[in-house]
Structure formats: structure tokens, C-alpha cells
Write a protein that binds this DNA or RNA. Structure first.
Length: 824
RNA sequence: GCCCGGGUGGCGGAAUUGGUAGACGCAAGGGACUUAAAAUCCCUCGGUCGCAAGGCUGUACCGGUUCGAUUCCGGUCCCGGGCACCA
């Protein structure tokens, strides 16, 4: 052990040691308790950023802690390697997405290794490798067979100038980010996964995932959005057809005075009367031009157009004009809304704008409601009026009664509706997993036979940045023959959404080299489910919902026997600097490489864990990093200075200590208990580190006496510190541990055990309050009963003045903590 | 607009089940060591009144429950994140 703490050489040394010994390589060991720890894998964007450092530092603490506690820990790492940025970079640099991606992976792998994260690198995978994506193609085919993958038309953002589909993030203020043309909605045939088949189960399990943050579960429940209501048919005046609506407010049916349809509604054009046809067509065109993001903006002007047709309210028999309205979405319900302007704010505004009638059917209890005087819709609970035989009912109870009535009369049916929509997985992009389908003029869409997999993504492609998917132009890829009839046919050129790859990578990690299928069932069942998953809160819905869905699909395809992929979830906050999220454009980025170079990886890890608890945002502070570095230096000196004493230390005899020794030992074991709980139960690494710092301060104040028991107590204390620090600053701990004369690595030493007997206090400090205000403190023997404490508190010199001339009404005693004297 | 979080010193944060508000760290100020600087060590550090002992006050704001509220309840304001106008 050197006199001075030199992180660079220490870190290189131990990283070499771990690599040479394959310290973190694991296999399925039935005799050991398994622990699968996973952090969300990175997109290989170029370099790691502080968010990665934080995410992976949090994970590494848990991995190393569990290892020290004797678990067989699976801790893998890989790359979410397909995606748009690679393609954009290829266009910009006139290079190839594969090259860009692999270079980035190589660089970032070095960075992660420099951080000292304890991964089993033998399991590394990249989703753009054919060994990964070919199995995904197989899964797609099996989903297709079961009807879980299907094709339907839907709308995409389309740039007419580039001739390209745009992602939402490529649309800026309704215009193409590259050429600034106005983006329009284009209808396209696309592949979908039937996630809605699993809506009920996905919802159900949100009530069983006890290891997930309630916040995330709430968001997922809201996303799935189950609601109970009715489907009601409104007959058309001049047609045989009916318009079907879904509503959760059947209690307001008597107040429905007009009908609003989505512009995309299949009946929209048919309902346009000759006089109105031109306006209706113009309106549909206009809605298609407005992009989805804008359409949902707060200040979006509610607009509509009258079709010229009328339908009939089935309970009031009133004529209801049928409008198209820009705020009605085809994706939710039936794409048609019965408009109740008196009791829905949007309908109220719409009715005002187009001079449509208002009919009050609910009034506040004990009051009446004048339709002419209303300035907003009345949307709270009340009593039904103008509703025939239902008048006088409370509107909540009326929901059930009216639903029953509608069913009996054959007007409508009770219905459950979900917000969740099927998952569109088609992407008109090159850098993704090719969807294994073939189009034949005679046979239609034909799946690629399983034995012909993989459909290789061709490498000889040029990137222009316009004119659509580059894959379309690779003749050798597109041109093929129909597997069914042998005639000339075309390959599907859509690739799969990258969320598909991230929906099952955690399963592939269990058997990454398995050559006979996507996963080796025996190995997967040993490791799954993931015991602890860690990642950013931004993935609370999409990724985490898709991964849950995919796990259930793989279960139903017979690949695995579990229902849910992640038993416990930890969502971490963002890394902030100067009050904003770190980003290149804001220029407030802290480069992990520079940090490692200056302080070493251990300091970077320590600070990112100490500055805030994981789930909170972390405000970066350069001075704070200095503080963490100073702390490590202090510990280093403490060990180095006491080394000669520690080497001579006799065996510890806990029964035979002086008061100072006992006090220090009590401190050591109380700290062990706290740090263990903070890591294991709360993931509050900041307070765990603070507790270790306090113990270091205590040890520094401890003066070893010339008695035989001082050195062993000190030795136990210092060894405890080093072992507790090991998950946080592993290189540092390994070096110091070896310096203390230990061999074989600190993992083998295990996590220190708390000796409960040593934590027992001999005396307790009792806080004395008078009328709830702190007035004094008394020290009593730990065994003192209530009477003794009370006596001592009432006699305390600092308390007495507050009792003078007053009468003691009550004394409340909280054992071992506090006594409150109530006087008046 | 809807949904989900959050608001504690100059700063990051602590107070885990309603029981000492401000642990730990940073910054700042003072001191020791040094020819000097760095490093290190020691002291002070919410506000306010006081020579001091100590008092009063204080966890966004207003109110409530309680012997006791940063913590629970009702209302208000502000900040952050998410969204697919959810009928």
C-alpha cells in the first residue's frame, strides 16, 4: 500500500485483476441463491454521459453488495444498437450505420470498463447482431401465426418533399426537421402487435407488482385506461345505418343535442350532403394536415363542420345535427361522440361556436340551472332533470340504472373500453430488424418460412436522406420468390420498432449463446425474473409496458413460465446541472472521461451516489466531487497511519473492553446495521455513505490507548469501513483490503455482520418537552422504567422554570425517546 | 386541460411508523501549521433578540386534527415531469 492514494494505477490494477480472474462471470449454480440485477442497456450514441454513470453506479452497488452477501449475481451489459440516430449519422457522415454503431460500442465499452462496473462481459450482446435479431424474426413469425401480429392501415407523419415517414421527434411545429415542408398525415399499411389482447392482464398485474413504484403503476394503469360505459346506437334520419358511440356518461344521454365524429370516421364522407360536401372535404383535408402533437395541444382551437345529416337521440327523439370535430379521435372509442354541451366543457365550447342548442339534464343539489346563464358546462355531481322517468336520481346512481334501461330497450349495451391501442411496430427505416414477410401478387402476404431465417439486413446500401426507406432500393433484398407458389415476389422492407428488441433482451442475457432458439428454457428459468431492474423514469410506460407484454407473449408461445419480467423496479431521476437537464445544446455537459482522469472512477461513483437518493434528480456540483475525493484520501491516510498498529493487533475479545472500546464498537455495529438497511431496503446510498463518513470521523477521534484491546477494536472498525465501502468504491476498497494483508479479493471477505449485542446502549438520552416544546434532556440507564424517567424529567433544572406555578395535567412518555409534560 | 411528482439553511440533502428540524457533505468566515502557497487539522455557520445563560421564531402559504405536525386532513400558490383533447 502506497503512502499516497493514486486512483489511476489502483484502478487499472484491479480492473486487470477482475478481467483476468473473470471475477463477475456466473453460471447457473443450483446450490446458490440467484440474483438477477439489470440496468437498462444503453443506446450506443457515442460516449457515456452522466445519466449512464449514475444508472450503472446505482446498479453496481447493488450487484456488489449482493455478491458480498453470498448471492450468485447475474449482472449483464449490452447494446440497444438499432435506431434512428445511426441512420442520421450515416446520412451526415456518408458512412454506414453499422460502422458508426460498432465504433461507438467499442468506445463506450472501454468507458464502462474504466468505471469498474462488475459485468459478466461474456454475456454482452448487441441487438443489431444477426445472432440476436434472427430470433426476434422467429418470434414475429410465431406471433403472426397466432394472430398477434397483423396488418392494418394507420396514419403516419409524412414529409411530401423528402418522401419519407417522420418520427414525432422529427416533426417541429408541424414541419419536417430537415426540409421544413409542412408535414401531413398519410394513411399507410403497417404491422401491429395486438397488445390490446393483453390489456386486462397487464392491468391486473399492476395490482400485483409490489416491488414497483406506485407512481409507475399508476401511470401504466392510466395508460391502459379501462373505463366502464355504454355503446349506444343513434339511428340516422335518412339512412338505414346507425352511428355507434361509446360513452361513460350515459347519465347525460337526455342532454345529447348533436353528434361529433372524427374526421377519419369511415362514415364521414357518406354523411356529407351535396350542399355540404365541399366544406366537409376541405375540413378532412385540413385535419390531415395538422400533426398529432399540435392537435393535442392545450390552446388548439376547437373546430368542426356540419355534414348536413341528422341522427336521432334514441331517448328524446330529438334531431341531432352530425358534425365532424377536430378534437374527436378515431383511435379512442368508436370515433364518434354524443355531444352534451350542458355537461361537457369541450362540447359546451363547440356548441357556443356553432350556435347549437343546450339541454340541461343535471342540476346541482338544491339549485336549478338556467341554460341561458351558463358560462361553462356543469360537470360535477347532481340530480337528473329533463330525463323522463329518471328525473330526481343522483347522476352517479343513474349511470347504472340508465345502462340497464338501454340494454332492456335494445338501444345500447354496457361496454368496457380501453385507452390502450395496438402497438404499431412498422418503421420505414433501414437500420432495424427486417420484418420477415413476403408479398406475392397471387398469395398476398406470406411469412418467410422459419427454416429460411434469418432475413439478413443487407449491408450494401446508400443513404440519401430522402426518398424513403433505403431498403426499398436494394433490389437484391426486395426481389425474391413466393415461398408458397414460387412466383416472383417482394420482401417487406419495413423494419421493426427498436422497442421490440428492448422488450426481450433481458431474457436473451440468460442464455446469450444459445443456438437452438431465442432462449434456453432451463437457463432462463434459473435466472428469471429480473430481481431488480433500474432505469430512468422516462421509460415508465412505453418500454416497461412493452417488455411486460412481450414476456406474456413468450410465455404463451411456450418459451418461458413466468408472467412478469421485473419483480422490483427502481426509477432514477435525471442528472441536472445549473438547473437544467444535461445536454450538448445547453453546453452544461460533464464529461465522465475527464472526471475519471482527474479523480478516478471511484470518486465519480461515490459522488453520483452521495449527492442524492436515486429516485430524485441529481444536481451536479464540481465542488461536491472534490469533497468525495477528499473523503477517500482521508480514509486512505487513516488506514495507512494505523497500519503498523493493526498488524500487531491481538484477537478481539468483545467481553473485555474498556468504555472507549465499547463505545467505538457500538458505533461500528450500529453503522453496519444502518448501512445494510439503507442499501438493502431503501436504496438510499446517500445516507449509507453519510453514515460511513460519520464512523470515519468517530474513528479519527478515537485515541488508541496502550492497552491490549484498543488495536483489535480499531482493526474491526477499519475493516468494517473498508468492506462497507467496497460496493461504492471497489478499486479503492480492494487496494486497501489487500494493504491490510488480506488476499483473494474483497468480495470473498463478505459483507460485515452486525453484532446486535454490541449495539445495545447502556444509557439513553430522553428528550423532555413541556407542552410540546423542547425544554431539556435527561440521561437515564437503558433499563429505567417510566416512573424513574418521569421523576428525573420533572426534577430537571432546565425544565423546572417552565413548570413553576403551573399544574401538571398529563405526562406522555414515548419509551426510550421522549417525555412530554402537559401543563396549564 | 388531464394525470403523476415535488417545495426544508447560501447549496446538495437528512429527519425511515406523528416524537430533539437541519445528520453528512459543499460553499463561506475565523484560526493553527508553513518563509509562502497547496495539502492537512481545529472552530463558527437558519433567522432574530441578548454581554451571556438563554428566549422567540422557522420546513412555500392559509386553516384543521393532535399532548406533539417537515410528516396526517382541507384549501391556495409556485416548480418539475408525462400526455394519445379519453368523451
Amino acid at each position: 500500500m502506497e503512502e499516497k492514494y493514486l486512483p489511476k494505477s489502483i484502478e487499472e490494477k484491479w480492473q486487470g485483476f477482475w478481467e483476468a480472474n473473470k471475477s463477475f462471470k456466473v453460471t447457473e449454480d443450483q446450490s446458490a441463491k440467484k440474483y438477477y440485477l439489470l440496468e437498462m442497456f444503453p443506446y450506443p450514441s457515442g460516449r457515456i454521459h452522466m445519466g449512464h454513470v449514475r444508472n450503472y453506479s446505482i446498479g453496481d452497488v447493488i450487484a456488489r453488495f449482493k455478491r458480498m452477501r453470498g448471492f450468485n449475481v447475474l449482472h449483464p451489459m449490452g447494446w440497444d444498437a438499432f435506431g434512428m440516430p445511426a441512420e442520421n449519422a450515416a446520412i451526415q457522415n456518408r458512412s454506414h450505420p453499422a460502422r458508426w454503431t460498432h465504433e461507438n460500442i467499442a468506445y463506450m465499452r472501454v468507458q464502462l470498463k474504466k468505471m469498474g462496473f462488475s459485468y459478466d462481459w461474456d454475456r454482452e450482446l448487441a441487438t443489431c447482431d444477426v445472432e440476436y435479431y434472427k430470433w426476434e424474426q422467429l418470434i414475429f413469425l410465431q406471433m403472426y401465426k397466432k394472430g398477434l401480429a397483423y396488418k392494418k392501415t394507420s396514419f403516419v407523419n409524412w414529409c411530401p418533399r423528402c418522401g419519407t415517414v417522420l418520427a414525432n421527434e422529427q416533426v417541429e411545429d408541424g414541419c419536417c426537421w430537415r426540409c421544413d415542408s409542412v408535414v401531413r398525415q398519410k394513411e399507410l399499411e403497417q404491422w401491429f402487435f395486438r397488445i390490446t389482447d393483453y390489456a386486462e392482464e397487464l392491468l391486473d398485474y399492476t395490482f400485483k407488482l409490489s416491488g414497483w413504484p406506485e407512481r409507475v403503476l399508476t401511470m401504466q394503469r392510466n395508460w391502459i385506461g379501462k373505463s366502464y360505459g355504454c355503446e349506444i346506437d343513434f339511428p340516422l334520419e335518412e339512412h338505414l345505418a346507425k352511428i355507434r358511440v361509446f360513452t361513460t356518461r350515459q347519465d347525460t344521454l337526455f342532454g345529447a343535442t348533436f353528434m361529433s365524429l372524427a374526421a377519419e370516421h369511415p362514415m364521414a364522407l357518406d354523411l356529407a350532403t351535396p350542399d355540404n360536401r365541399a366544406q366537409v372535404e376541405a375540413f378532412i383535408e385540413k385535419v390531415q394536415k395538422s400533426d398529432k402533437a399540435r392537435r393535442s395541444a392545450e390552446d388548439f382551437e376547437k373546430e368542426g363542420v356540419f355534414t348536413g345529416s341528422y341522427c336521432i337521440n334514441p331517448v328524446t327523439n330529438c334531431r341531432m345535427p352530425v358534425y365532424l370535430a377536430n378534437f374527436v379521435l378515431m383511435d379512442y372509442g368508436t370515433g364518434a361522440v354524443m355531444a352534451v354541451p350542458a355537461h361537457d366543457q369541450r362540447d359546451f365550447e363547440f356548441a357556443n361556436k356553432y350556435g347549437l342548442p343546450l339541454r340541461v339534464v343535471i342540476r346541482p343539489e338544491g339549485e336549478s340551472l338556467d341554460p341561458g346563464a351558463m358560462t361553462a358546462a356543469f360537470t360535477t355531481e347532481g340530480i337528473l332533470v329533463n330525463s323522463g322517468r329518471f328525473d330526481g336520481l343522483g347522476n352517479e346512481e343513474a349511470k347504472e340504472i340508465i345502462a340497464d334501461f338501454l340494454e332492456k330497450e335494445g338501444i345500447g349495451t354496457k361496454s368496457v373500453n380501453y385507452r390502450l391501442r395496438d402497438w404499431g411496430v412498422s418503421r420505414q427505416r433501414y437500420w432495424g430488424n427486417p420484418i420477415p414477410m413476403i408479398y406475392c401478387d397471387l398469395c398476398g402476404a406470406v411469412p418467410v418460412p422459419e427454416q429460411e431465417l434469418p432475413v439478413l439486413l443487407p449491408m450494401d446500401v446508400t443513404f440519401a436522406g430522402e426518398g424513403g426507406n433505403p431498403l426499398d432500393k436494394v433490389d437484391s433484398f426486395v426481389t425474391t420468390t413466393c415461398p408458397q407458389c414460387g412466383e416472383a415476389a417482394r420482401r417487406e422492407t419495413d423494419t421493426m420498432d427498436t422497442f421490440v428488441q428492448s422488450s426481450w433482451y433481458f431474457l436473451r442475457y440468460c442464455s446469450p449463446d444459445f443456438a437452438a432458439g431465442p432462449l434456453d428454457r432451463a437457463r432462463s428459468e434459473y435466472w428469471m425474473s429480473v430481481d431488480q431492474y433500474i432505469g430512468g423514469i422516462e421509460h415508465a410506460v412505453l418500454h416497461l409496458l412493452y417488455a411486460r407484454f412481450f414476456t406474456k407473449v413468450l410465455r404463451d408461445l411456450g418459451y418461458i413460465g413466468i408472467d412478469e419480467p421485473f419483480s422490483n423496479l427502481l426509477t432514477q431521476g435525471m442528472v441536472i446541472k445549473d438547473g437544467a437537464k444535461m445536454s450538448k445544446s445547453k453546453g452544461n455537459v460533464v464529461d465522465p472521461d475527464a472526471l475519471i482522469k482527474r479523480y478516478g472512477a471511484d470518486t465519480a461513483r461515490l459522488f453520483s451516489l452521495f449527492a442524492a437518493p436515486p429516485e430524485k434528480d441529481l444536481e451536479w456540483s464540481d465542488q461536491g466531487v472534490d469533497g468525495s475525493f477528499r473523503f477517500l484520501n482521508r480514509v486512505w491516510r487513516l488506514v495507512f497511519d494505523t497500519l503498523p498498529l493493526l498488524h500487531r493487533a491481538a484477537t478481539l475479545d468483545p467481553e473485555n473492553l474498556n468504555d472507549e472500546g465499547k463505545a467505538l464498537r457500538r458505533n461500528v455495529h450500529k453503522t453496519i446495521r444502518k448501512v445494510t438497511e439503507d442499501i438493502e431496503e431503501r436504496f438510499h446510498f446517500n445516507t449509507a455513505i453519510a453514515a460511513i463518513m460519520e464512523l470515519v470521523n468517530t474513528i479519527q477521534a478515537f485515541e488508541p490507548k496502550n492497552d491490549p484491546q484498543s488495536a483489535p477494536v480499531l482493526k474491526e472498525a477499519i475493516e468494517g469501513i473498508i468492506r462497507m465501502l467496497a460496493p461504492f468504491v471497489p478499486h479503492f476498497a480492494e487496494e486497501v483490503w489487500a494493504g491490510l494483508g488480506n488476499t483473494g479479493g474483497i468480495d470473498k471477505a463478505g459483507w460485515p455482520a452486525c453484532d446486535a449485542a454490541a449495539t445495545m446502549d447502556e444509557e439513553l438520552l430522553i428528550v423532555v418537552q413541556v407542552n410540546g416544546k423542547l425544554r431539556g434532556k435527561v440521561t437515564v440507564p437503558a433499563c429505567a422504567d417510566e416512573g424513574t424517567v418521569k421523576e428525573k424529567a420533572l426534577a430537571d433544572a432546565k425544565v423546572l422554570p417552565f413548570l413553576e406555578g403551573k399544574k401538571v395535567r398529563k405526562v406522555i412518555y414515548i419509551p426510550g425517546k421522549l417525555i412530554n409534560i402537559v401543563v396549564n
